[in-house]
Amino acid sequence: MDVCVRLALWLLWGLLLHQGQSLSHSHSEKATGTSSGANSEESTAAEFCRIDKPLCHSEDEKLSFEAVRNIHKLMDDDANGDVDVEESDEFLREDLNYHDPTVKHSTFHGEDKLISVEDLWKAWKSSEVYNWTVDEVVQWLITYVELPQYEETFRKLQLSGHAMPRLAVTNTTMTGTVLKMTDRSHRQKLQLKALDTVLFGPPLLTRHNHLKDFMLVVSIVIGVGGCWFAYIQNRYSKEHMKKMMKDLEGLHRAEQSLHDLQERLHKAQEEHRTVEVEKVHLEKKLRDEINLAKQEAQRLKELREGTENERSRQKYAEEELEQVREALRKAEKELESHSSWYAPEALQKWLQLTHEVEVQYYNIKKQNAEKQLLVAKEGAEKIKKKRNTLFGTFHVAHSSSLDDVDHKILTAKQALSEVTAALRERLHRWQQIEILCGFQIVNNPGIHSLVAALNIDPSWMGSTRPNPAHFIMTDDVDDMDEEIVSPLSMQSPSLQSSVRQRLTEPQHGLGS
């Protein structure tokens, strides 16, 4: 029994001894940790006062410096006190997940390849973020970090730009207890964004957000305005092209109309020559008939004078003969009235020469109109080809070629109108001259024959008349068809009918 009691006491004593040793060891460790923490804080404070003595007594600045020092320690893998190029590049790629850190790398180092804690602190103090207000930090939280649900907490804590380094380091107390961020992804996102802002300055999105919006609005307005302008120009170009094509079609119709007119003019001239020949034959025939009538009257007179026994018949025959003579005298007077005045042959040749010289100047004017028309046609064809290209319509709308071609078409039409008026006036004037003179002027042997017949020096006439060419005029020349008939041919039928009527009546009387 005593043995059992003793054994229990030994065990209890051993447990108490072991517990005492454990408590003693724990207290010694706590004392050691407290001592090392105090030494670390003293070291940080001493270093901060050495680097930035004016701010070393500010608790907030001291906390920010400690956060900057921890960031530098995080980047300094070899713990030599300086962050070199390789260490910063590795940190950007692995910790901040930048696949192309060239720009960030140059911004961080600049011309200094080794970055110490002092360099990093001075860079942070010179950053724009260091002077941010609470509102600017909240704006950064909303737009860049995209965590607007913590806006009220940031405003309540009055977190300005000075506190940004403390957000950039992993601090459970700061993010969990103070900021009350329960979501781990939110804490990590805030820490990475803050670290990027401390090292490289304010984000471009935050700094140029309004400018970007303004430029976007301006670009949209310019784009819409450009599209509207292109649409208006395209519609104007199509309308202008439609008008130009309509004018061009009018020129083609006028060309065909003048071609038909020239054919009718040539045909009328041929008919005029035929009528002139018929007139000469008719006059000769009338003279022959008059002579035959005179001979017949003389023969009847002689027969009736030789027959004294038939006085009654003779008297009747003499009366008939007197009627025939009276008819012959009237026919002769009618014929003489139409051919009583004949212009000198020299006057006819001079008038024919005048007509040919006028035709020369008319042909020159006509050729100029043809050239203008050809230029207008070529310009229209070029515009047609340009319209078939990809940007042809837009190019035509913004060039002056369309207006130039339109002006050329209008100029050609005006020139053709002048040529039309000149042709109309010339035909009418020479027709009236032919009526008054009674001989042909338009139809003549040609300028060379006339110059030779009148003994004129050929050098006075200049160049010879160009051959009539096919040219274009407007449709108002169609009503000239009825005026192209020679006035002499219009007189011939009346002359034929009057003479024939007077010759036929006596012959019928003789026949009876």
Rank of each mutant, 00 (worst) to 15 (best):
Asp82Thr: 15
Glu86Gln: 05
Val68Arg: 03
Glu94Pro: 13
Asn70Trp: 14
Phe91Tyr: 08
Asp76Ile: 15
Asn97Lys: 00
Ser88Gln: 09
Arg93Gln: 15
Arg93Gly: 08
Leu92Phe: 13
Ala79Trp: 10
Arg93Met: 06
Asp89Lys: 06
Asp78Tyr: 06
Met75Cys: 12
Ser88Tyr: 01
Leu92Trp: 15
Asp76Phe: 11
Met75Trp: 09
Asn80Gly: 06
His72Cys: 07
Asp95Cys: 11
Glu90His: 08
Phe91Ile: 07
Ala79Asp: 00
Asp84Tyr: 05
Glu94Lys: 00
Glu87Cys: 06
Phe91Arg: 13
Met75Asn: 10
Ser88Ile: 03
Glu94Leu: 12
Tyr98Leu: 01
Met75Phe: 09
Gly81Tyr: 14
Asp95Ile: 04
Leu96Gln: 11
Asn80Tyr: 02
Phe91Met: 12
Asp95Arg: 06
Arg93Ser: 09
Leu92His: 15
Tyr98Gln: 07
Asn97His: 05
Glu86Ala: 06
Arg93Phe: 13
Ser64Leu: 13
Gly81Val: 10
Asp89Glu: 00
Val83Pro: 13
Asn80Cys: 08
Val83Leu: 02
Leu92Glu: 15
Arg69Asp: 07
Leu74Arg: 04
Ile71Tyr: 09
Asp82Pro: 14
Glu66Tyr: 10
Asn97Tyr: 00
Glu94Gly: 08
Arg93Ile: 13
Asp76Arg: 15
Asn80His: 11
Asp95Phe: 06
Val68Leu: 04
Phe91Pro: 14
Asp82His: 09
Val85Glu: 03
Leu96Phe: 03
Arg69Lys: 07
His72Ala: 10
Met75Gln: 10
Leu74Met: 02
Asn70Leu: 14
Val83Tyr: 11
Asn80Ala: 08
Asp84Phe: 09
Phe91Leu: 04
Glu94Asn: 12
Val85Thr: 10
Asp89Pro: 07
Leu74Thr: 10
Tyr98Pro: 02
Ser64Trp: 12
Asp77Arg: 05
Asp77Trp: 03
Asp84Glu: 06
Phe65Thr: 10
Leu74Gln: 03
Arg93Leu: 15
Val83Asn: 09
Asp82Glu: 08
Ser64Gln: 13
Asp95Lys: 05
Phe65Tyr: 06
Asp82Lys: 10
Leu96Trp: 14
Asp89Gln: 05
Glu66Met: 09
Asp78Asn: 07
Ala79Phe: 02
Glu66Gln: 06
Arg69Trp: 07
Tyr98Asp: 01
Glu87Phe: 02
Asn70Ser: 02
Asn70Glu: 10
Tyr98Ser: 00
Ala79Val: 01
Leu96Asp: 11
Asp76Gly: 06
Leu74Glu: 05
Val68His: 10
Leu74His: 08
Asn70Val: 14
Arg69Glu: 14
Asn70Lys: 01
Ile71Ala: 11
Met75Pro: 03
Ala67Glu: 04
Ala79Ile: 04
Glu94Thr: 13
Glu90Asn: 08
Val85Ser: 02
Val83Arg: 04
Asp78Val: 09
Val68Trp: 14
Asp89Phe: 00
Phe91Ala: 15
Val68Ile: 05
Val83Phe: 08
Glu86Asp: 02
Asp82Tyr: 04
Arg69Phe: 11
Met75Thr: 03
Glu87Asp: 02
Asp77Gln: 09
Asp82Ser: 13
Lys73Arg: 02
Leu92Asn: 15
Ser88Phe: 01
Asp76Lys: 15
Arg69Gln: 08
Val83His: 12
Val85Phe: 08
Lys73Phe: 08
Glu66Val: 05
Gly81Ile: 14
Asn97Met: 05
Asp84Leu: 08
Glu87Leu: 02
Asp77Phe: 09
Glu86Leu: 04
Asp77Met: 06
Phe65Ala: 13
Leu63Val: 03
Ile71Gly: 10
Lys73Trp: 11
Asn97Val: 04
Asp78Ser: 13
Asp82Ala: 14
Ala79Tyr: 02
Phe91Val: 10
Asp78Thr: 15
Arg93Cys: 14
Val85Lys: 06
Glu87Gly: 01
